[in-house]
Design a protein around this nucleic acid. Structure first.
Lengths: 229, 229
DNA sequence: GCAAAAGTGTTGTGTATACACCCATGT
DNA sequence: ACATGGGTGTATACACAACACTTTTGC
């Protein structure tokens, strides 16, 4: 008979791949590990799952405690379970990925600056455990997802210009996008709307500011719409 | 300090959504549960993860022991972790889904016929735990995947006709597909090749037999090809 | 020769891509 | 007035969807 106590239990951790974008490059949030094993190496923000929380709740708690952020875009990525992925013993990791505007993060106090750091995704340091693999899987997922689902707005300010949005997409997809086609499609999709405002103070024409139209987006999802960049 | 023994550990199970296709309808393999809780209800084939095996190895072991099958198409689906999903305590389930030709299965002895049964996916019985949810996620994943990746051949005999393949796709996608367009696209994709043989004995024109071209498929994947139905 | 399923092309329609100039603003 | 990035439309190629008849085989 299958009783819970009849079976040995693995440890279960949650690891989060946190993507950020500062207007120039796609970055990843890593933490400098203070304990053995892998002391002083960089790791994904993570921690052990508590028995009274779901994996997603756990991911949110961990991100909150390590970065101070809540309410971010979060999605389960994959469960990594190589037998030897953690030298301390048998540890499964349920990995999540999150999108964050790093400028929201800079405002927060209480984070030891040397321990938590953004790294450009093209210049990552050596990471502990199997975190390199997790990051690779997360990045592939993000790239695939962004072309057919309108995620990515979380990485920008609430109000953004179309040029900023396009740069972000180019950053994620690592390829140039035609400006006119990009604007046409993103506007046709109706997932963003103009705020009517313009941003002035630049030394050129004042660009129009847009925002994500969440209500409209939810309606479109109900009708089963397909987004495409 | 994060030591493994400092944290309580959840139990971890593996559950498998096994899709089958008998030439007429898409089916799902369920097992009649003999223990409490949920005694006598239908469940996904599953079991506890052993510490010395990866989740995928565990899924293969479980499928082998409950159905006798190995070497099937298997892919991690999602990790389900609701706190109350199992009344016995805190149990995470790493779910997989698999594709199987049920006719391969019928040949196997040693399976108590009343305990393991195929159900048409449109006529499922009440299931235990959160297995209904897991099945729903698996079916959505299968539907999405089949349109851009050439999976599904596992559900047919090694040699199959284009009409059989088309019926399978119609079954999975639950919509009619135009015969000429289907043939055109599937042949253009190069993932199947003619065997040169024909199947006779029917009371109509003898159809050509095709097979999945695995070598060619691997080459195409390397070049980053996109399949599309 | 008839029933039953296999097999085969073309055309229209819509969607994706490629491409270059004018506009508004600040200095 | 000039430098800088913002904003706009069209023509072409390609991909997808719709559609009906002929061929082969067994009875």
């Amino acid at each position: 008979m299958d009783e819970l106590q009849d079976y040995p239990r693995p440890s279960v951790t949650i690891d989060c791949v946190v993507f950020g974008y500062d207007g120039i490059a796609l970055s990843l949030l890593l933490i400098n590990r203070k304990e053995a094993p892998f002391i002083n190496m960089w790791t994904l923000p993570g921690g052990f799952l508590f028995l009274e929380e779901t994996p997603e709740e756990s991911a949110r708690r961990i991100l909150k405690s390590k970065t101070g952020l809540n309410n971010l875009y979060l999605e389960q990525l994959y469960t990594f379970g190589d037998v030897k992925r953690d030298p301390r013993g048998r540890v499964l990791s349920v990995a999540y990925y999150a999108l964050v505007d790093p400028r929201r993060l800079e405002l927060l106090a209480g984070i030891a600056a040397n321990d938590v750091k953004w790294f450009e995704s093209s210049k990552l340091p050596k990471t502990a455990f199997d975190h390199k693999e997790i990051i690779k899987v997360a990045y592939n997922r993000l790239k695939a997802k962004v072309t057919y689902q309108p995620i990515g707005f979380e990485l920008l300010d609430k109000k953004f210009t179309l040029t900023e949005l396009q740069f972000l997409y180019e950053c994620i997809l690592q390829r140039p996008i035609d400006k006119r086609n990009f604007r046409k499609r993103i506007l046709e999709s109706k997932v963003i709307k103009s705020t009517g405002e313009k941003r002035s103070g630049q030394k050129n024409r004042a660009p129009e500011l847009f925002e994500f139209d969440e209500l409209q987006y939810k309606n479109l999802v109900k009708e089963g719409f397909q987004f495409k960049i």
